[in-house]
Amino acid sequence: MFPTPDLLLSQFIDEWNAGRRPNVREYLRRVPEGAARDELADAIADWLAVAPTPELDAAARAQIRAEPVVQRVFAAAGEDAGLWPQVLPGLREQAGVSVKQVASRLVARFSLGKGDEARTADYLRQLEQGELDPTRVSRRLLDALGELLGASAQTLTDAATFGQGLRPAAAGGTLLRAEDPAQPWVAADFAILADAALEPAPPSLDEVDRLFLGGPEG
């Protein structure tokens, strides 16, 4: 005999109010899949929409901080690649495709040459390993990846920009706030710019590069 959704909801509420951190998925597993489980899920969601935030003591807060998913999110917040190295391989595996297959589909989608497949796969691997800044990915590639991997472009964008949103804003006006004379710094900057100006121009981006490195409009 399974407990009723009403009874389980009440137990969940009592645990929540007491700050005992009830786990929704464990509760859902106590009823058979189907109408009863759906009813309990909806009832718990309703409760969570209006529930007061329980007082969490230091131990409970430390416990939450130690949750693997929280650790991963906190770790990703400081990274250029944001959450992509964490979510991209998982989404791909869930979609049941290899990096090579994704590359092949992208090549077809963007009418690239057959010879571009290896380079596309390489870019994809770099993205999955956090070696490429995902904010440089073009919007059309985001849309295509989203369709292939079953995620919206917006979700992928959020995951990409996740780390950057938590950094200090660009320090415009630093020179004006400097207490020491700024000339040596300015001279150094000019020297770097002058060196860069003397370097030969980098090769222009081809279509594959534009997709992966060209920025949103690329």
């Binding site: 929704v24 859902l28 899949e33 899920a41 909806d42 718990i44 935030t53 939450i64």
Partner: peptide, 16 residues
């Protein structure tokens, strides 16, 4: 502060 609520709402949304 919001983690348990978020985790719970996600769990309820996919219904396990």
């Amino acid at each position: 502060t919001i983690f348990d609520r978020m985790d719970g709402l996600v769990g309820a949304a996919h219904k396990g």
